[in-house]
Design a protein around this nucleic acid. Structure first.
Length: 761
DNA sequence: TCTTTGTAATTTTTT
DNA sequence: ATTACAAAGA
């Protein structure tokens, strides 16, 4: 046995040792997923002698990709990691498309438009088509376009069964034309073009042949096109390993389709399936609580998280009077934790929506507790940074109209909306990009001579700078740009606190360009403006913030993949969590809320506190909320109910889980200021699996023991007999939903077994 | 062209 | 409560 094997449990080792053919790994929360992925890759290289450059590992975020590279560097060394293909879906596609994209009409230096750019294109198209922006909000039109693209449909293939407004189709068509004209792609295009390329003879084969082993992390988050991409990529060899957890699928609203992981077995016949169910992260109470919340979820792949860890302290469910009371309570507990020696780094406060953060922030500030909010306005979304980047992109790719229009009068240079409108229609009438139109601006009759002059001056300015791109380093070009365009001077003249902050942000951008140059040099590549822009457009935020310990505030979505010693989950009221939006909440959405709650609970290592309020101000209105239905799914023995001094006590009916689906009666009694909840329906009782024969997956084992079957008094050292494994010895007792132990069977190794499958030996 | 005022919207987020 | 964004005024 090598040292590698010793560090892995049985299913982990199985996943690591697997080499060829499809492999599906269900990775429960805290089950050592990253370890399995990295060891598996290391194993392919070291033992199976697969060349690193033939292995592709795909993630969803740059952070996850970075983490994977980091961990692999420790295992396999820098040289190996440099040759591996590790990246997000989008970054990987961009990289391949720059090399092979000519075949489908992409030039090497295409731009990637982010959401804001895309929206600007839509807005422009709406105006061109003279459509009312109130009737067709750009945001929602863009959303509809993306929905189609995520399913791989263009304007001409939009699904006829789903009624779509004719106007949207028109906008879609022109949107695509504009993107082509600007030599730009959106995020969906990166995937879509790649699929098209892969499905072609020649180029497709070449790309397919590149990779002999493909791995996809967080597979439950893939959408239809990403799934198609993966299938096309591994068509020849089926050496595909996907890792994920259907219980943690929380991105349905952005196109993710859990069925990709649930139907993997069907689509890749003969797939090996491994389930990582041992949780190394959390206490027994937390694991059981999480199981209680996720168990009622229908269709889930049967799996049972368990842990050998001790039970730990009980989970607290705290009732507060309102959101200020709640925030004060959380702050007090954070202070206690710090007094007890916890680092603020180990403490997180979660909420369902960002709007909840303000009150928490205020309370923490009063208590002088440093905090950081994850997911506020991102660095690269600040106006000044976007402006500067627009200039840089325009230097790299003159045809980018969105960028040109963004900066055409920034800083103010006397080019107003009238001039811009005329310029746009002038370019449109000649079927040219605006940049091309600028070259012949003197032919534009409607544009006043003075305005023509200013436009020409802008053109010359851009040309001067563009000439420098060939010669100077990206960071020098950047400095010359903010100087010569007058951008910096305009901010300096402003001389307000805000303009100071903006100047600082520009300095930081300059710093990140230099950082890019350094990393390019380290990788032996030439730093180019194109290269920098690419790294920016596929990277969302700068996380290299100062390392002072801080309390972390974030939405539950943002928490996925993280873990903390202390977790405070706030706003556990009906209509907050599960969240109630304007439109009707479908069953699917409710199930996603449930999974979201599961994700939240499983972030905590040892201390978990859930808070809910009687009344909450949100969006200027007061909501009276009953405790969340998810609270009643927590196993009673793992939790303790408390209330702050300001809160009234919680009626028992909000604590108990109803035996049978309730008649609506007890809920209907709303009393202002009490725990009335006119809008709160009774939580759906746990589905009785035996009564729903049509379901695909029924977790029978779990439910059968829900009535509390007597378990034999087993302890470490007890001798037991199992039908298949024979006689063995109990190594530890496990805290799972049902009594279980880990036992050692000679010839089989350690196995986790439900107690009811064991007989005393 | 720039500033002010009014109005509507407001889950979750990556790339 | 807050904010973003568009139309109207200086």
């Amino acid at each position: 046995m090598s040292s590698v094997d010793v560090e892995l449990n049985t299913p982990q080792a199985e996943a690591v040792a697997h080499v060829n053919g499809p492999l599906l790994v269900f990775a429960g929360a805290g089950s050592g997923k990253t370890r399995v992925i990295t060891y598996r890759v290391a194993n392919l290289i070291a033992r199976e002698r697969i060349a690193p450059y033939r292995i592709l590992a795909v993630t969803f975020t740059n952070k996850a990709a970075g983490e994977m590279k980091h961990r692999l560097t420790g295992l396999a060394g820098e040289d190996v990691v440099r040759d591996l293909w590790v990246g997000t879906f989008h970054a990987t596609c961009a990289r391949l498309l720059r090399r092979h994209g000519e075949a489908i009409g992409l030039t090497r230096n295409f731009l990637i438009y982010d959401t804001q750019d895309q929206k600007a294109v839509v807005t422009r198209v709406l105006r061109e088509l003279d459509l009312d922006e109130r009737r067709y909000p750009p945001r929602s039109v863009l959303y509809q376009i993306h929905k189609e693209k995520q399913e791989g449909r263009g304007p001409d293939e939009m699904s006829p069964e789903s009624y779509v407004d004719d106007a949207v189709i028109k906008v879609f068509r022109r949107y695509e034309a504009h993107m082509r004209e600007a030599n730009a792609v959106d995020f969906e295009d990166l995937i879509g073009h790649m699929v098209r390329l892969l499905e072609r003879e020649g180029e497709g084969d070449a790309i397919r042949r590149r990779f002999s082993h493909v791995l996809v992390d967080e597979f439950q988050d893939t959408n239809a096109m990403q799934y198609r991409l993966v299938r096309a990529l591994v068509r020849d060899h089926n050496n595909i390993c996907v890792v994920g957890d259907d219980d943690q699928s929380i991105y349905r609203w952005r196109g993710a389709d859990v069925r990709n992981i649930r139907y993997f077995r069907r689509d890749f016949p003969g797939a090996t399936v491994v389930k990582l169910e041992q949780n190394y992260r959390s206490t027994g109470n937390i694991v059981r609580a999480a199981l209680g919340v996720i168990a009622p979820s229908p269709h889930r792949e049967p799996k049972e998280l368990w842990t050998q860890n001790d039970n730990g302290p009980p989970i607290e469910v705290m009732a507060a009077a309102d959101e200020r009371d709640e925030a004060a309570f959380v702050t007090g507990r954070v202070l206690d934790a710090r007094k007890a020696g916890a680092s603020l780094r180990e403490i997180a406060v979660f909420y369902r929506v960002h709007a909840q953060s303000r009150v928490l922030e205020e309370a923490l500030r009063i208590a002088n507790l440093p905090y950081q909010i994850v997911g506020g306005t991102k660095f690269y979304e600040r106006a000044e940074v976007k402006d500067a980047l627009a200039y840089l992109r325009l230097l790299a790719n003159p045809r980018s109209d969105v960028d040109l229009l963004r900066i055409i009068n920034t800083p103010a240079r006397g080019i107003g909306t009238t001039t811009v409108d005329r310029l746009v229609s002038f370019a449109g009438s000649r079927n040219q990009s605006i940049h091309e139109a600028l070259e012949v601006i003197d032919e534009a009759r409607d544009i006043a001579a003075a305005a023509q002059k200013r436009l020409a001056a802008l053109r010359h300015l851009l040309e001067r700078l563009r000439a420098r791109v060939e010669i100077a380093s990206p960071s020098d070009v950047f400095l010359e740009m903010i100087e010569q365009t007058g951008y910096r001077e305009a901010l300096r003249a402003d001389n307000t606190a805000e303009s100071d902050a903006r100047l600082e942000n520009l300095a930081e951008l300059g710093g990140s360009i230099r950082e890019y140059e350094a990393s390019a040099a380290a990788a032996g590549e030439k730093a180019s403006l194109d290269g920098f822009l690419e790294s920016v457009s596929l990277q969302s935020d700068i996380d290299g913030l100062r390392d002072e310990p801080r309390v972390t505030l974030m939405t539950v979505h943002g928490a996925k993949g993280l873990e903390f010693e202390y977790v405070f989950l706030t706003g556990m009221e009906e209509d907050m969590f599960p969240y109630k939006s304007m439109d009707e909440r479908g069953d699917e959405e409710l199930e996603e809320e449930r999974r979201l709650a599961y994700v939240a609970l499983t972030r905590a290592r040892r201390h978990l506190v859930l808070t809910h309020t009687q009344a909450r101000q949100i969006f200027g209105k007061t909501r009276w909320g009953a405790p969340s239905r998810f609270l009643r799914d927590l196993p009673r023995e793992a939790i303790v109910h408390k209330q702050t001094r300001g809160a009234k006590s919680v009626p028992q009916r909000f604590i108990d889980r109803p035996e049978r689906p309730l008649a609506p009666a007890p809920w209907a009694a709303a009393s202002r200021g009490g725990w009335g909840a006119p809008s709160a329906p009774p939580a759906p009782a746990r589905p009785a699996p035996s009564q729903t024969p049509g379901q695909r997956y029924v977790d029978r084992e779990f439910f059968q023991d829900d009535h509390g079957g007597e378990s034999a008094p087993l302890r470490r050292g007890s001798r037991v007999r199992h039908q298949q494994f024979g006689e063995g010895e109990v190594r530890s007792v496990v805290h799972a939903a049902e009594p279980a132990v880990v036992a050692f069977f000679p010839g089989w190794g350690e196995k986790k077994i439900l107690t009811r499958f064991l007989r005393p030996a």
